[in-house]
Simulated scan of single mutants.
Amino acid sequence: MTSLRERFTADMKEAMKAGEKAKVAAIRLISAALKEKDIEARGAGKGEATADEILGVLQKMIKQRQESIAIYDANNRPELADGERVEVAVISSYLPKQMSDDEVKAAIDKAVAETGATAVKDMGKVIGVLRAAYAGQMDFGKVSPMVKAALGG
């Protein structure tokens, strides 16, 4: 399996040849974000960003764009919102398949059993297990309330 970095480069070349300007721009944004992450890691004495860190960067980029889309829609700027939606689609194509709600609930139940969590104060342990096992496969903004509900919160 090729690494995500190699896939970004290959997809960039392919998009440039095909004249897909929006896709090229989105991949350049991803590359710039990864370079920032690598520089940050080097400053902390680490090497290049790991695959999990790259997934985290991609998820953060998607979240930022979704927030922008909401603002643009609220301010009646559909042309700007559409540009952000294109970027979200390109960035999302690099993330693993997202889990369904039923799969998320099953994963939460498994993590609760695994950690022995019984109350909301144990929520951090459960989220930690889920992040380690399912990075990039679930939206933790939506998962947190589900975990809280599972723990009786």
Rank of each mutant, 00 (worst) to 15 (best):
E6G: 10
F8Y: 14
K97G: 07
A150S: 08
E36F: 13
Q59P: 01
V90I: 15
A15M: 03
S93Y: 10
V24R: 05
V129E: 05
A106H: 10
M123V: 14
A44D: 13
A113T: 04
K142N: 11
K148N: 09
A25L: 08
I39A: 10
Y134H: 14
P78H: 06
A117F: 03
M138Q: 01
V120W: 03
L95C: 01
I62C: 02
I62V: 15
R7K: 14
D122I: 06
M123Y: 07
K60D: 14
M61R: 03
K125S: 07
G153N: 01
I91M: 05
E67M: 11
G56I: 07
K35D: 13
D52M: 03
Q98P: 01
L29D: 15
A132W: 03
E103D: 13
G43Q: 09
A135H: 03
T50R: 00
M1L: 11
L34G: 02
D11K: 13
S31R: 10
E114S: 08
K35T: 08
M146G: 09
E114V: 04
K105Y: 10
D109M: 04
V120I: 10
L130Q: 02
K110A: 14
L34I: 14
M99C: 12
A51P: 03
K17H: 15
G116H: 01
S92V: 01
A133S: 10
K35G: 08
E84M: 08
K125V: 03
S3V: 03
V143A: 08
L80N: 04
G19V: 02
V104P: 00
Q137S: 04
G45Q: 11
D101G: 05
K60H: 15
K97I: 14
G116I: 05
L34D: 04
V129Q: 01
I71E: 12
V143E: 01
K17D: 09
L151Y: 07
L130A: 06
I54D: 00
K23T: 13
M138D: 03
D11Q: 15
I69Y: 01
M146Q: 15
K121I: 03
E114L: 06
E67D: 14
A25F: 13
L55N: 05
L130K: 00
D11G: 07
E40W: 08
M146E: 13
V129N: 07
Q137A: 10
G45N: 05
